[in-house]
Design a protein around this nucleic acid. Structure first.
Ligand SMILES: [Mn+2]
Ligand SMILES: [Mn+2]
Ligand SMILES: [Zn+2]
Ligand SMILES: [Zn+2]
Lengths: 138, 138
DNA sequence: AAATTAATGCACTTCCGTTGCATACTTCAA
DNA sequence: TTGAAGTATGCAACGGAAGTGCATTAATTT
C-alpha cells in the first residue's frame, strides 16, 4: 500500500527509476534536502533530471519546497493529508546555523495572522534559526 | 538633528556622497529595496559600491536585510530604536505577489515561539505572501 | 510497426551575490 | 606640507544556483 511506487502513482506521477530513487532518498532523510544534496548522493546523476523530479514532486503534492533563508531551496516530503498548496496549513521550519540542517516542525502550526484592512494573506512562511537539539548536546 | 548626514555619523558611517544618495533613496521608498532597485535608480552607479553601501548600513544598524522568499535580498531602513540584530524584536514582512513589493509591517511583532526541548531560537523570519491593499483596490 | 507522448541528459544561459585588485580620495602625524 | 596609512570606489571577474532549449531515448497508444 505505502510502498514507493504507490506514493508516486497515487499522486499521478509515473514511477520511473530516477523518481523512485529520489523518493527513497527523501524518505530516508529526516531533514530537508537541497537539489545538490540529492545530486551528490548519487554517483551518476544528472542535475536537471533531479531538478525536474523535485519540481514534479512539488507540483503533484508529494513534497513541499522550503525557503529557509540560506538561499538554497530545500525540499521535504509532505505528511499524509498535508495541504501545502492550500493556505494556512503550513508548519514552521527550523534551520540550525551550526549543522546547517533544516527540519520541518510539523507539529507547530502557523497561527492565523491578522493583517491590516485590504491585505489578503495567501501564504505564510515562518523560519526559525538557531541551534538544534543535536548540536546543543555537543 | 535628523538630517541625512547625522543618521550616518550617529551610526559611525562616514557620510560619503554615494552613501547619502542611497540613504536618501531608502528614506523616500516606503517598500523594501533590492540592490538592483538602487542600481537602476541612479543613472551612473556601480553595483559593487551600492552593494557595499547596503552591507555597511546593515552592519551599522541603519537598515536591515529582508529575505522575502523571492530569492532577491531586500533592504529597508530600521526604525528608531530598532534592535534588528538582537533577537525577537523583529517584525513581519509582507510580499505582494501582484506588484511584487515587499513591505515592513513594523506594528506586527513576531510572537514568542516555543520549540521542543533542546532547540534554541536565535532568529525568526516571518513572511506573508498575498495581495497588498493597493493591488486589492484595482 | 508507426506515431505520439513523456522523460532524460547535456550544454548553455541568466541572475544575483560576492571577491580581488588597482585607483582615488581622506585623515593624520611627522 | 608632505608622506604614509587608512578608507572608499570602480571595474572585472568568479561562483553557485535556478532555469531553458533541444536532441535523444524510453514508454504508450493506435
Ligand atoms: Mn516542511
Ligand atoms: Mn522590515
Ligand atoms: Zn544542528
Ligand atoms: Zn501589491
Amino acid at each position: 500500500m505505502l510502498n514507493l511506487e504507490n506514493i508516486l502513482t497515487n499522486n499521478n506521477v509515473k514511477p520511473t527509476a530516477m523518481r523512485l530513487l529520489v523518493l527513497q532518498f527523501l524518505l530516508n532523510k529526516k531533514s530537508a534536502t537541497s537539489l545538490t544534496d540529492v545530486e551528490n548522493y548519487f554517483d551518476k546523476s544528472d542535475r536537471t533530471t533531479i531538478y525536474r523530479t523535485l519540481k514534479t514532486f512539488v507540483e503533484k503534492g508529494i513534497s513541499h519546497k522550503i525557503d529557509d533563508g540560506t538561499g538554497i531551496t530545500k525540499y521535504a516530503l509532505c505528511e499524509e493529508n498535508c495541504h501545502c498548496e492550500i493556505d494556512n496549513d503550513l508548519h514552521l521550519h527550523f534551520h540550525c546555523t551550526n549543522c546547517n540542517e533544516t527540519i520541518c516542525v510539523t507539529d507547530y502550526k502557523i497561527p492565523k495572522i491578522t493583517l491590516s484592512r485590504g491585505y489578503i494573506a495567501e501564504n505564510i512562511n515562518l523560519v526559525v534559526k538557531g541551534i538544534c537539539d543535536t548540536c546543543n548536546k555537543n
